[in-house]
């Protein structure tokens, strides 16, 4: 008697989503960047770390001095921008994926326990969540990194901690509304354990808001990790991460503006894609919000 997703509902959902042109465009962009990330080493014309001594700060193809060998120009030590941006997509998508994975699992467990058991467990968990939320996201991430030390893995952990409250609150709220419903009572009276009731009965019915939160968590994760990279606290120097590419090229903003504009543009497009898609998902999954937000 566990909840099974209804095929008709899924088709209905895609019909609903298709009406939102922005969400479809967002999804296409996400797919595009995912493919670029997956096949980065095939798609990149050069290695992201190869130094071309005779081609320092070459402008992109659309300027007069550009060459076809380096379509988007080169950076200050002669590395191909396009190849670095392509590998940067891999880094950023991996960051987003790890952040959502870590934060979703931790946040969901905390939310399930808080919502299902209530009482003292709920009070304590929500207090910790309140404290996490009292700190601005970047400041909290900075604090975590300052304890763990700078680096890509630590930045991912820091950004995941920042993302946990969102998941916990979403799951807790839907658990609290679901747990009084008849199907949960039925499962309990049939002798199902608490764990089984939580995971098999309640959790599947919390999926819709959780998926939306996951999509939006992806964009927040990428943005925050890039900000840490920009501040020198995330990914370290030779890694082709967009945030650090940006901060490394700040000195060349006047002479070689493409070095600054291109990585930032990539961050913006990916984050925007996830936000547009997440917005569309929310509208499609929650008909009550239609026409609002």
């Amino acid at each position: 008697m566990a909840y099974k997703p209804d095929r008709g509902l899924i088709i209905e959902f895609f019909k609903e989503l298709k009406k939102n042109k922005g969400a479809v465009a967002g999804l296409c962009l996400i797919l595009f960047f995912s493919i670029v990330a997956l096949f980065a080493s095939v798609l990149a014309p050069h290695s992201p770390s190869e130094l071309f001594d005779n081609a320092l700060r070459l402008p992109p193809i659309f300027s007069e001095a550009g060459t076809t060998k380096f379509l988007l120009g080169t950076d200050d030590v002669g590395r191909d921008m396009l190849s670095r941006l392509i590998h940067g997509a891999q880094v950023s998508m991996l960051i987003g994926l790890s952040v959502v994975f870590l934060a979703m699992i931790t946040g969901t467990i905390l939310g399930l326990v808080a919502g299902f058991y209530g009482g003292l467990a709920d009070k304590m968990i929500m207090r910790v969540i309140d404290i996490i939320m009292a700190l601005p996201s970047i400041l909290l991430a900075i604090v975590v990194v300052s304890v763990l030390g700078p680096g890509l893995e630590n930045a991912v952990i820091a950004v995941s901690i920042v993302a946990i409250p969102g998941f916990t609150r979403v799951v807790r709220a839907s658990v609290m509304s679901e747990k009084e419903k008849d199907y949960v009572q039925a499962s309990k009276s049939l002798g199902a354990s608490n764990l089984r009731t939580m995971l098999r009965e309640i959790l599947p019915n919390c999926m819709a808001p959780l998926i939306v939160q996951g999509t939006l968590g992806f964009s927040d994760g990428i943005l925050n990790a890039a900000a840490l990279g920009f501040l020198g606290l995330g990914a370290q120097a030779p890694t082709p991460e967009w945030g650090i590419m940006l901060s490394d090229s700040r000195a060349f903003i006047e002479s070689s503006p493409w070095m600054v504009t291109l990585p930032g543009l990539c961050i913006l497009i990916v984050v925007l894609a996830f936000n547009v898609f997440g917005d569309g998902l929310r509208d499609a999954l929650d008909p009550r919000l239609k026409g609002q937000g």
Partner: peptide, 22 residues
């Protein structure tokens, strides 16, 4: 506004400098 909401402000600041200052 969705574009503004997704803006990496550390980049946006540099773009503003590039346009209005440089």
């Amino acid at each position: 506004s969705l574009l503004g909401y997704s803006m990496p402000i550390f980049w946006w600041g540099l773009v503003l400098i590039l346009i209005f200052s440089v």
